[in-house]
Simulated scan of single mutants.
Amino acid sequence: AWTEYQTEHSQEPRAEQLSAYLASKKGMTGRGGKPVSPSTLRRYLLPFRVYNVWAEHRVRNEIPSPDAIAQECAAHGITAQHNKPLTTDYIAEQADDFERRWQALTRHHAKPQQ
């Protein structure tokens, strides 16, 4: 949904926009059938943004460099809380999860072509 929103709107969604998109386009709702709370989604926005940069690097390198990703995130204004730069440690901690996501999405997108 994150990627589809970006494709349709040419920008990253804010939590409120992603909540509405999930409800209207994907039928994903929270309690009581209402859209997922934007405050619930906010915790995922930073990892989604960092994953996008990581995935661009993953296309070119089997093991993306946390340092290169941190530098590119800084260049794009992607920061941690209180506008602190992302650390290479943060990116390295996410690497296994990012790789799992990469593999799952790669398989998902390859299925229709088979």
Rank of each mutant, 00 (worst) to 15 (best):
P64T: 07
P112K: 01
L41W: 03
L105Q: 15
G32T: 12
Q103I: 14
Q81E: 10
A55T: 12
E93F: 08
A95V: 06
A75E: 11
E12C: 00
T106S: 14
W102Y: 13
E4A: 03
A74M: 08
T3C: 09
I63R: 15
L41N: 06
K26W: 11
R42P: 01
R60W: 15
Q11V: 09
L46W: 03
R101G: 01
Y51T: 02
I91Q: 03
P64V: 06
W2H: 12
P112N: 01
T3P: 00
N52P: 02
T29Q: 10
L18M: 13
A80F: 11
E99S: 08
P66K: 07
L41F: 02
D97W: 06
A95Q: 08
G33Y: 13
K111R: 15
H57F: 15
A110L: 14
S10G: 08
D96F: 06
R43L: 05
Q114I: 09
D96S: 14
A104Y: 00
K111D: 05
A80V: 06
G77M: 05
T7K: 13
A20C: 04
P47F: 00
H109T: 14
T29F: 04
D96M: 07
S24H: 10
C73L: 07
Q94P: 06
S24F: 00
A110G: 02
Q103S: 09
D96T: 15
A15G: 07
A75K: 14
R100V: 00
T88A: 12
P47H: 01
K84L: 10
T87I: 08
E99C: 02
W54C: 00
T3N: 12
I69N: 02
A68C: 08
H9M: 04
R43K: 15
I63S: 14
R43A: 13
E4Q: 13
H108P: 10
L22R: 06
W2M: 03
V53S: 01
R31F: 00
A23M: 05
E16N: 15
V50W: 03
L105T: 09
P85C: 06
G33L: 06
S19G: 09
P112R: 01
K26H: 13
Y5L: 03
Y21K: 13
T40N: 14
Q17R: 14
P38N: 06
I69F: 02
G32D: 05
K26L: 09
D89S: 13
N83K: 14
R58E: 02
A104L: 09
